[in-house]
């Protein structure tokens, strides 16, 4: 889609699902009384016999998905990220991941999207829960185009996966650097600070980078949609960045998310690092308009711009800009 077009991930998903259903007759859709939010309606209209709404019973839904997979189906499991990963964590681990079943989980309204509803409906720990369970691939697409590519990758990959989606229309970000590895999306080029971001928070980081450019601060923004397994090329990218500052931005607890995953990959690769963590500071969310809530957590574009500028201003005299590749 055209860069800048506003599309919500869930709407893109709702359009894609019937298409996938036509391509893959084994695809089965499961919901737990949130199908209006999860946008599975068009699939249900096309394939009512391959759709099951189990009611408000997420643990049962995950077990039913395991049974569908054992009987040869490919279940797509839908509900809010919070209810799926918190309530059904044991079922996800023992009924799906342990037997390595081909179940595809989709967690909607992740992060603090459900602003006014408050902490109970928000998910600031879903990535942490899912990536701590052995064998689950974890994704947080950065825009609707990325979501489509991600779901297609999920379909091609046998075994359990988790895709984190957000609620609101967010811009198609495009990519301004076609030489980057596919797993790592170059969203903005710059030389003073590298921000690695996952999920639709990427739009906030890009907006902050664009605002800072006008102030003469040059921010490189890289998007990562597959958190587990994290593409190892990210270690070379950080290594080549040298001593310049690196930040990780995610609409998730600073613990258990992309920053931890990245730190782990850098440790494995022997790349010394210090990551500035732009995430939810180990607290639950709260009620409030989503944008205001995001800003209050330091994750809206205005707050991010301030935080990035503060880090850049504290840097010692910049090394020769020619010395380190961009």
């Amino acid at each position: 889609m055209t860069s800048g077009t506003l599309v919500s991930l869930r709407d893109a998903y709702g359009e894609l699902l019937p298409e996938l259903g036509r391509e893959e007759p084994r695809l089965v859709v499961l919901d737990a009384d949130l199908s209006t939010s999860t946008r599975t309606g068009k699939f249900r209209q096309a394939f009512p016999e391959r759709t099951l709404n189990v009611g408000i019973a997420e643990q049962n839904m995950v077990g039913v998905a395991a049974g569908v997979a054992l009987a040869g189906g490919i279940p797509f499991v839908h509900t809010f990220a919070s209810f799926l990963t918190r309530r059904a964590a044991d079922q996800i681990a023992i009924s799906v991941a342990y037997p390595r079943l081909n179940v595809k989980f989709f967690g909607f309204h992740a992060g603090v999207n459900l602003g006014e509803d408050g902490a109970t409906q928000q998910a600031v720990e879903d990535v942490g829960i899912m990536q701590a369970i052995p064998g689950i691939r974890v994704y947080a697409p950065v825009d609707a185009d990325d979501l489509v590519a991600t779901v297609r990758e999920v379909m091609r990959t046998a075994g359990p996966t988790y895709v984190r989606l957000s609620r609101f229309p967010s811009p198609i970000l495009g990519q301004d650097d076609s030489t980057a590895a596919p797993a790592v999306k170059a969203l903005r080029s710059g030389g003073q600070i590298l921000v690695i971001v996952t999920g639709t928070l990427a739009a906030e980081v890009v907006a902050a980078a664009d605002a800072l450019k006008a102030q003469g601060i040059s921010v490189r923004v890289v998007g990562v949609s597959r958190i587990k397994p994290l593409d190892p090329s990210i270690a070379a990218l950080v290594s080549a960045w040298g001593p310049r500052p690196v930040a990780v931005a995610e609409e998730h607890n600073i613990h258990g998310g992309l920053a931890d995953a990245l730190s782990s990959v850098l440790d494995e690769a022997g790349v010394p690092h210090r990551l500035h963590r732009f995430g939810v500071p180990d607290r639950f969310g709260e009620s409030g308009p989503p944008r205001e809530l995001l800003e209050s957590l330091g994750l809206g574009s205005r707050a991010l711009a301030e935080r990035i500028a503060a880090i850049v201003s504290q840097q010692p005299a910049q090394p020769d800009p020619q010395r380190w590749e961009e």
Partner: peptide, 20 residues
């Protein structure tokens, strides 16, 4: 046929299998 041991999970799996 199925990994079990965390009690309470097997019947859901059976429902999913039987439905499919």
């Amino acid at each position: 046929e199925m990994s079990t041991g965390s009690l309470g999970q097997g019947l859901s799996v059976g429902v999913g299998m039987a439905w499919r």
